[in-house]
Design a protein around this nucleic acid. Structure first.
Length: 259
DNA sequence: ATGGCTAAGTCGCTTAGA
């Protein structure tokens, strides 16, 4: 089962980039972030015409997540539990049944800048709620994964210029601690299970020629429950996508499970 | 401390992103 996460940065502005990639990548499941539209104006046809089932959790203008799957999507849930007042669309999950059933969660973790401030408080509170959901998923003792734009640079080797990020919400010690707390519940960070090498990024800013200078950061992650980690056969970052026409500022991360 | 770019809504600027 090939599962990808991709922050698309506006689904309506990214028809070509998304469909070109979908047509060549041969995926079973995709979680998308920053669709930046309500469900009513999501371009369902470009997805469904390619044989995907589709579940969206949109929002006007910002945020918004979706799950695409060639297999049926079962028991779909929208919204991260733990705060009924939270109106931002940043979490969707569903079960995909291949050889094995896999609980697939797609997430768009808050950016949190500027820090300190209310946006950073929201980020940390959201990460607390994520930890609670993550613990519940582990308790099920089944293959589960949480994939998406975490807006967390876990380690210095995950940035081309770590010094430039020391006061940023993506890299503050408290952010990285909260991310580690989730990992330490018992999750495997899929990409780091494959390699400790520096220089692998998933985001390059549109500004200042960041792509041309390879001034990137790795903030799109896949976390695996132990039962899912046992099934992982490969993972890679599709950085080449960033160099195409009218790209997202993020690139897809693709994990393969024997499931 | 920055804000060189991009998307979307409020539609000629502002907000948000990271």
């Amino acid at each position: 089962m090939k599962i990808a996460t991709f922050n698309i940065n506006g689904i309506r502005a990214r028809h070509q980039a998304l469909t070109d990639w979908l047509d060549e990548a041969d995926l079973d499941v995709v979680v998308l972030q920053e669709i930046k539209t309500v469900d009513e104006t999501f371009p369902r046809d470009i997805i469904e015409d390619r044989g995907y089932n589709l579940e969206t959790f949109g929002q006007k203008g910002f945020n918004g997540v979706a799950i695409l799957s060639k297999l049926p999507l079962e028991d779909v849930r929208r919204g991260l539990p733990g705060d009924d007042e939270d109106l931002q669309s940043r979490w969707i999950e569903a079960t995909v049944v291949g050889k094995t059933a896999v609980r697939v969660c797609g997430l768009y973790l808050p950016n949190g800048n500027p820090a300190p401030g209310p946006k950073y408080d929201y980020k940390l509170a959201w990460m607390e709620r994520l930890a609670a959901r993550a613990a519940d998923l582990l308790a099920a003792e089944e293959p589960a994964l949480m994939a998406g734009d975490y807006n967390v640079i876990p380690q210095p080797e995950d940035a081309a210029r770590p010094d430039a990020w020391v006061k940023d919400a993506l890299y503050l010690p408290e952010t990285r601690e909260a991310f580690r707390r989730i990992l330490n519940l018992g999750y495997t960070e899929a990409f780091r299970a494959k390699t400790r090498a520096p220089g692998h990024y998933s985001f390059w800013d549109y500004q200042a020629g960041a792509w041309d200078r390879n001034d990137g950061i790795r903030i799109d992650h896949v976390l695996l429950s132990p039962q899912a980690a046992d099934l992982m056969t490969d993972i890679h970052i599709e950085s080449e996508v960033r160099g195409r026409e009218k790209p997202s500022d993020h690139v897809p991360v693709v994990v393969e499970l024997d499931a």
